[in-house]
Amino acid sequence: MTLEAVPSPLPSATAALVTELARSAAESDGVHPLSEHTLLHLDGEHPGDVHVLAYAGEPGTSDLAGYAALGPDGSAELVVAPQYRRQGFGTSLLRVLLDHGGSKLAVWAHGRLPGSDQLAARLGLEVTRELYFLRRPTAPLAEPAWPSSITVRTFVPGEDDAAWLAVNAAAFAHHPEQGGWTQADMADRLQQPWFDPAGFFLAVDSTGAVAGFHWTKVHEDEGDGPYGEVYVVGVSPDQQGSGLGKALTLQGVRHLQEDRGLASVVLYVDGTNTAARALYEKLGFTTAALDVQFAPKSL
C-alpha cells in the first residue's frame, strides 16, 4: 500500500482514474461514493483542496485502490475500490484525512453502507449530520399557487448569475456547502452537459428582483433509466412562509414529469430541515437512502 497526498489540481490522467474508481464503486454499491462537488474539483484549480490517493502498487500506476478528498472547510469524502476493501485502505485514508483536517474534519458516508459506522467509531468519529435522499414516482401534482406579485421565468446565463448567487447565499446562510457557492462554482455547473436553462426557474417580484428559484437536473446516463432531480430550491428570507417554496417545488417537479417525461424525481434534504421534509412527504416523496456525516467526537 502506498499513500500520496497532493494539492489541487490532479493531473487529468489521475482524475480519470478517480472517476472510474467512483463509477466502479457506485455500480457495486448502488450509491455514488463521491458528490458532484468533489468530482468537479478533481482537475480544476481549487486552492486548499487536498487529494489523497491510495495505490496497491507504486504511486502513479493504474492500480488505484482508494481515494479521499478534503476541502479547506474540513468537508471530506472517501472511496475504496470494491476489490480492495477490508484490507486497511479505508482506515489509512481516514487517518490521513484526520491528520490534515484535525478537529474540522467532517466526512460524508453516502448511503451509510455496512462498515462505515465501524470505521468511523474505530477512529473516534461520530454522526453529526444526516442528509435524506428522497424519491417520488411519476404521479399527478397540483398546479402551483403563486403568491401575489410573483411571476416565473427561466434563468438566463450571464445575466442572472449575480442575482441568483445573492438569493442562494441568503436562502442557505446556515448551510455553507450550498450558500457559499461562488461564481466559479456556478460556472462549473453551467458548463456541464446536463445543464438546461429551460429547467432552471426563477420567481421574480413586481420589481424584477429574484425572490426564489428551482434549479432542476436530469440524470441521463443511469442504469435504471433517466430520472430528474430537484437540484436546489431556494427562497429569499423575506418570502419565507408565503408558499413560494411549495409553488417552486411543484413547478420544477411538474416540468421534470410532464415536459421531460421522466419516471421519477429525486432530491436531497438536510435532516434538520423538518419543514422541507414535511413538504416533500406531502408531495409524495419517500426516503430511499440516508447519507451521514462523521466528525471527531466533542470533548
Rank of each mutant, 00 (worst) to 15 (best):
A289Y: 11
D29P: 07
L113G: 14
L119I: 05
G30M: 04
P296K: 09
A166S: 09
V127C: 09
G71P: 00
W108A: 14
P47G: 11
S28K: 13
S148P: 08
T38Q: 00
S75W: 13
P147F: 05
L98E: 05
N273G: 07
T207E: 15
G271F: 08
Y231G: 03
G102Y: 12
P144D: 05
A295H: 10
V152N: 00
L53F: 03
G234C: 05
T154S: 13
L141V: 13
S62M: 03
H100D: 09
L119V: 05
A211G: 04
A16W: 13
V18Q: 04
L290S: 06
F133H: 15
V233Q: 12
G66N: 04
H174L: 11
T287W: 09
P7S: 07
G199S: 00
S24M: 10
V204R: 02
L78E: 00
E36F: 01
H214Q: 11
Y268P: 02
Q191V: 13
V127W: 09
T207A: 13
T38R: 00
P197S: 06
L248M: 14
L98P: 02
L105D: 04
S62E: 13
Y84R: 12
F155V: 00
A162P: 07
V6Q: 01
A106P: 10
H110M: 12
T14F: 07
F213T: 05
G102S: 10
P7I: 10
P176E: 15
T14K: 07
F285Y: 15
A145C: 08
P226W: 03
A278H: 12
E77N: 07
R277F: 04
A170M: 10
D49M: 12
L250E: 02
D161T: 06
D117P: 10
F172C: 01
F172Y: 03
S148D: 10
L299T: 12
L202P: 02
G158T: 02
G223P: 15
F172L: 02
T128A: 08
E20H: 10
D224G: 06
E45H: 13
G228T: 05
E36N: 02
V50Q: 03
R23F: 05
G284I: 14
S116M: 10
R136Q: 12
L39R: 07
G124D: 14
V253R: 01
G199I: 00
A187T: 13
S12F: 06
L244D: 02
A15R: 03
T154L: 08
E177R: 15
A120D: 08
P237I: 09
E177Q: 15
G48H: 11
